Amino acid sequence: MTADQLSEPAVRAFVAAVNANDREAFRDVLAPGATMADDGTERDLAEWTEREIFSSGGRMVVESEEAGGRSLVVRYRNDTWGEMRTAWNFVVDGGKIARFETGQA
């Protein structure tokens, strides 16, 4: 499944920004004060995304979506950890990502 096939526009923009390594587009899809968790632990969103996505060449290959496109199973890869199967759950508010949670699927 490609990013442009995802049902939820904000999630579609999130995945496209990650895959394009586009920090500005990524920031634009986030709501003010957006938060995130990784494997159930709250993380600093800016620090985590820089380390796990942008500085390490993160890429998302979506396997499936549920909950109207707000829940994804993804083959996620970066230069630090290689490839792993991950779940991503999004809270969308006003067309922006207010929160996302990721972890091993």
Results as ranks from 00 to 15, higher is better:
M1I: 10
M1P: 10
Q5I: 03
L6W: 02
S7V: 13
E8P: 04
E8W: 00
E8T: 08
P9M: 07
A10V: 00
V11D: 09
R12V: 00
R12Y: 05
R12S: 09
A13F: 07
A13C: 01
F14G: 01
V15F: 04
A16S: 15
A17Y: 07
A17F: 00
A17L: 02
A20C: 04
N21S: 09
N21K: 01
D22Q: 00
D22V: 01
R27I: 01
V29M: 04
A31G: 09
P32T: 09
P32W: 01
G33Y: 07
G33T: 12
A34C: 12
T35W: 02
M36H: 08
D39E: 15
G40K: 01
T41F: 12
E42C: 05
D44K: 05
E50D: 15
R51F: 13
E52V: 08
I53A: 08
S55W: 06
S55I: 05
G57F: 01
G58D: 05
G58C: 04
G58V: 02
G58S: 03
R59Q: 15
R59T: 11
M60W: 03
V61D: 15
E65C: 11
E66D: 14
E66W: 13
G68T: 06
G68L: 11
G69V: 09
G69F: 08
G69P: 03
S71A: 13
V74Q: 10
V74S: 08
N78Y: 06
N78R: 02
D79L: 12
A87Y: 13
F90Q: 05
V91R: 15
V92D: 03
G95R: 07
K96G: 04
K96H: 13
K96I: 06
I97Y: 11
I97G: 02
A98T: 08
A98C: 07
F100A: 11
E101F: 07
T102G: 12
G103F: 03
G103I: 08
Q104E: 12
